[in-house]
Design a protein around this nucleic acid. Sequence first.
DNA 1: AACGTCTACAACCGCTGTACT
DNA 2: GAGTACAGCGGTTGTAGACGT
Length: 244
Amino acid sequence: MGRSPCCEKAHTNKGAWTKEEDDRLVAYIRAHGEGCWRSLPKAAGLLRCGKSCRLRWINYLRPDLKRGNFTDDEDELIIHLHALLGNKWSLIAARLPGRTDNEIKNYWNTHIRRKLLSRGVDPVTHRPIADSTEKKPPSAIGFMSNQTEVKKEDKTTPTPTTTAATSSSSEEYESPTWRRQRKPKLPDLNLELCIAPPFPSQLEGEMLVPSALAVSNSKPSRGRTMMQQQRASVVYPVSQNGIT
DNA sequence: AACGTCTACAACCGCTGTACT
DNA sequence: GAGTACAGCGGTTGTAGACGT
């Protein structure tokens, strides 16, 4: 079977974008709007694959991007949302206007992870590091994680992930090579589950899973993907301090 | 000044989910 | 229902610049 490559790699540029390429892409999208990324490069006269154009536009060129340093409020909001959603960067980004999933992901890996460690909080479990190796009862966030983890880990490296999965030693993250290592993945929140009664103070005493997250097993309407519907439904009220 | 290491982040890669035929 | 095309997502990598020795 297999799928055709997203682009003809022999005839596409790679690496950093030039000013001219940026200008072309911006000019094209201004004139024609987003959409049909596959055909866009040719139409815009770019030697890039559509995927690359999309990434460049979304992560860098979009006019509504905020850029610049994250505020403390944004930091805290990201931490809260990560505790709820795990590595669902696109969902987290949807709550932070002007920020992209890629930007948040990078920021998490470079800043927030360390910030949490310095607070003595495990960035994976969001629990105090001393507690995090203890056996925990299933939580709203963690109770679906095992099966999906195994599936993912199986096809990557044979490294002993069972130890890593529960390990939260700070050395692992402070090692210069932590980024290159297979790290324990965050427990995923299963968005397809049915609504459960609110958990009593699961996270910092007052964080509740927004009900919108757990709904929508219904069929998507035509012309709109399930993912898009789901994303659109995850609209949280914004407050100064994050979750309201 | 030269070199090695670390950090930040842009970009790429591979995979998944959905739509369409 | 199967096969294919496409958009989008999350993980990973590459690399420029900052920093330390």
